[in-house]
Design a protein around this nucleic acid. Structure first.
Lengths: 236, 236
DNA sequence: CCCGAAGGTCAAGGGTGTTGTCATAAGGAC
DNA sequence: GTCCTTATGACAACACCCTTGACCTTCGGG
C-alpha cells in the first residue's frame, strides 16, 4: 500500500465522507477524546471511531499510520490542555505544585487515554514546552544544572506515574473498579490482630485514607525534600 | 452456564487434557507468566495460553471466571515474589528502601503483567502481608498511626506508580519503545536556545539522565522527607 | 461397579486492528 | 469549462481476540 499518510499541513483535497462530514487530524483527535470520555475505555476502537466520525473505519488510516500514532496525538493533546493558561509565578514551590496538579487533573479527565499513554515520550510541541517550563522553574530557583536535571526527572516521572496510576484505576471497567474498592473493607477489615497486628490497629484510618489518591501528599513530601536540597545549595 | 469456577481447594477430580497435562490454578498462573516473559506483551491471550497449556482455551474458564480474575492472580504472584525472603532489619530507612526496590524489580521482571495490574487491589494473601510489613516499619519507627497511614499510602503508591510506569515503557512493542527512546535525541537535541533555552542548556545532561528510571532518586527524596518528619515527631 | 457431575472440548457469536483494491470527487492545467 | 491525475473515502476480507452454551468423557465417592 506504499505510504498512506499525508502530513496534515500538506493536505489539499478534502473529500467529504458518505454522510457529508469533512475529516481532519484535529477533528479525529477531538472526536476520539470525546468518544472515550462519554463511553468507557473500550469505546476507543477504530470501528467505533469511524462510526462516531461518520466515516468508514479505514479512513482513519489516511491520517494516522496506526492506532499507536493516534494514541500519541491524543497524549500530546492532553499535555497541551494541562498547560493551557499556566504562567510561572516566580515561586518555585507554587509553580511546581501547580504543574504537577495540572498534569494529574488533565490526565484524570481522560483516564482511558492517560492509562495508555502517560509513559510515552512524544517529542511533540506541547510536551517540549512542558519540559522547558519545569527546567526553567528549577534552574531559576538556583539549582545547578546537573541537580536541576535529576530533580526534573524525579518530579516529572512522579507526576506522570501518579497520573497514570490513578487514571488506570478510574479507567477500569465498572465491575472491576467497584470490586477493587470493596476489597479495602471486605479483605482488610477481616484481618486478625494475631496475623496482621499493624493493619488491624490502623484499619479505619487505612480504609479512609486509601479512598483518595496518595498523590497530593507524595507531592508535598517531594517538594519538602527539594526545598531541603535547595537550602543546602544556597547556603553552601 | 451457571457457575463454572470451582475454588482450587475444593477440587477433587482432575481430568487430564487431550494431550495428557493435568491443569491447576498454580500451573496456569506459572504458564501465563512464562508465556508473557518469553514472548511479548501480546502473547497473553486465552487462546495462546490454552495452546501453551496443551488444552482447549475455554478450559481456562474452569479456573478463572474471566481474564480479569486471571490477571489478579498473576498480580498477587508477583507481589509474593517481591517479598520472598525479605526480613526487617530494624532500620526503617533501609527497610523501606529495600521494599520499594524489590517491588520495582519484581514488577519489571514481568513488565507486561505489571503494566496491566500494578494499580489493582487484590486483597489476596501476598498483598495483605506486604501492607502489614510496611505499616509495621513505619509504626515501629515511631510514627503515630494517622501519620503512618498517610506515609504508607504515599510510599506504596509511589513504588507501584513508578513500577507501573517503568514496566509500561518496557512492555511496549519494540518499534514503539525504540521510537520513544530516539525522541530524546531526535526531538530534544534539535530545540533552539531561542525557544527552549533551558532545554538547550542542559540537553546532554538531560538525554543521559532520562535513559534510566527516575525511581531511585525519587525514592531517596521521599525517604529524606519522611526522615525530616520523623525527626520532628521524635523531637516534639 | 455404577452413576452423577466436574471438567475438557467443540463450535459459534460478536468483537478487534489492519490492508489491498476499487471508485469517485477535488482541484490544477489548459 | 473541461479533462486528468491522484488523493482519499469505501468495501471486503484476513487473522486474531474473549466468551459462552452444549456436549461428552472420565473421575471418584458410595
Amino acid at each position: 500500500m506504499a505510504e498512506r499518510v499525508v502530513p496534515e499541513h500538506r493536505r489539499q483535497r478534502r473529500r467529504p465522507t458518505k454522510n457529508g462530514t469533512v475529516l481532519s487530524e484535529r477533528m479525529i483527535v477531538e472526536t476520539a477524546l470525546r468518544l472515550v470520555a462519554q463511553h468507557g475505555a473500550d469505546a476507543l476502537s477504530v470501528r467505533r471511531l469511524g462510526a462516531a466520525l461518520g466515516a468508514d473505519p479505514s479512513a482513519v488510516y489516511r491520517y494516522f499510520r496506526n492506532t499507536d500514532a493516534l494514541l500519541l496525538a491524543l497524549a500530546d493533546e492532553m499535555v497541551g490542555r494541562a498547560q493551557a493558561g499556566w504562567r510561572a509565578t516566580g515561586d518555585w514551590r507554587t509553580d511546581l505544585r501547580e504543574i504537577a496538579l495540572r498534569i494529574h487533573a488533565a490526565y484524570l479527565a481522560n483516564p482511558q487515554v492517560a492509562a495508555l499513554a502517560a509513559h510515552r515520550t512524544t517529542g511533540r510541541e506541547h510536551e517540549t514546552r512542558a519540559v522547558e517550563s519545569i527546567l526553567g522553574v528549577l534552574r531559576e530557583a538556583g539549582f545547578p544544572d546537573a541537580e536541576a536535571v535529576r530533580i526534573y526527572h524525579a518530579f516529572v516521572d512522579q507526576a506522570l506515574a501518579f497520573a497514570a496510576l490513578d487514571a488506570a484505576a478510574l479507567a477500569l471497567p465498572e465491575p472491576a473498579r467497584a470490586a477493587d474498592e470493596r476489597v479495602w473493607h471486605a479483605a482488610y477489615g477481616k484481618l486478625s490482630a494475631d496475623t496482621h497486628p499493624h493493619v488491624a490497629a490502623t484499619y479505619p484510618l487505612l480504609a479512609a485514607d486509601m479512598r483518595d489518591s496518595g498523590h497530593p501528599f507524595a507531592l508535598e513530601l517531594l517538594l519538602d525534600a527539594v526545598g531541603a536540597r535547595l537550602a543546602a545549595h544556597t547556603r553552601g
